[in-house]
Amino acid sequence: MKRLVTVVTGGGRGIGAAICRRLAHDGHDVVVGYVNDTAAAEAVADEVLEAGARGVTVRLDTSVEADVERLFATAEERLGPVTGLVNNAGVSGPLGRLADTDTADLRRVVEVNLLGTLLCSRRAAQLMAPRRSGVIVNVSSAAATLGSPGDFVHYAATKAAVDTLTVGLAKELGPDGIRVNAVAPGMIDTEMHAEMGDPGRARRAAATIPLRRAGTAEEIAAAVAWLMSPEASYTTGAVLRVSGGR
């Protein structure tokens, strides 16, 4: 039986780590892509092994074409033909109004969230199309439709682009047997908020969410896992909102 081999970018922590763990539990061998924290990525790979799957770590910057090539080459050499991709790597930059945001921060957000997703998706399509099968799941954000004024409209703009990519690429790759979908998380309680300079952000937002709480990384991972599963075999071009009603 052919093994499922899934590449997860930004897999070393937060939502990405939860996705790696869940996919391993569902029988996927997992490539844990990460950018900085080697120890955290190795810990996730160990959890993948404990779940009975194979795990490999690859350090890369998704906005660098050569790194993306190396990511997929390592996946195929170590684990076998890539059957799935989760484009989870993303950055938000500091919270604040667009007028106060540095150009370097704008550029980095666009390069990782959009260009990185494009580069990884392109490479996955090149490998999957001749095999006539594959699944790509993009991690978008509810910010794509909310706009995130005062927080990070530039981040929201890149996620809206990811939603458009999801729809267009699903139509482009459908005849090749490749499904492309996205999950759009709402306010999720991860370390991302502390990195943006506001560790209490998720807790404070609870009052504005219909379910009256922030979500968990595991809840996003469950949605990703469903979209990657045979149960979603007729689902492509969808953006699945997992946001507590917001």
Rank of each mutant, 00 (worst) to 15 (best):
L165G: 07
G215F: 03
G90Q: 09
G200P: 05
V135Y: 01
G245M: 11
A222L: 05
S148L: 15
A225Y: 03
T158N: 05
S140M: 07
L211M: 12
G93W: 03
I15M: 10
G200Y: 02
V8N: 05
N181M: 05
M192L: 15
P94F: 02
V239I: 15
S63D: 13
A156G: 08
E231L: 08
E42A: 08
D151K: 05
R131D: 14
N36D: 15
N138I: 14
R78E: 15
P185Q: 02
R132L: 13
D189H: 11
R122F: 13
L173T: 09
T117W: 07
A17W: 00
Y155T: 10
W226T: 06
S243H: 07
Y34C: 11
A43S: 06
G16H: 09
K159G: 02
S243I: 02
A89G: 04
G84A: 10
A206H: 03
A125H: 01
A222P: 00
D67I: 07
R241A: 14
V239N: 08
G237H: 05
L49K: 13
A144I: 04
A75M: 07
H28P: 01
T208A: 15
H193D: 13
G16P: 08
I136W: 10
R131V: 10
G186Q: 10
V153M: 14
G16N: 11
V180E: 04
R212Y: 01
G11Q: 05
W226S: 04
L173Y: 02
G174V: 11
A194K: 10
R70A: 15
Y155I: 09
G186L: 12
T117N: 02
R13K: 12
G52T: 10
I178P: 06
T6I: 10
T145Y: 12
V5P: 00
A184T: 03
T216N: 04
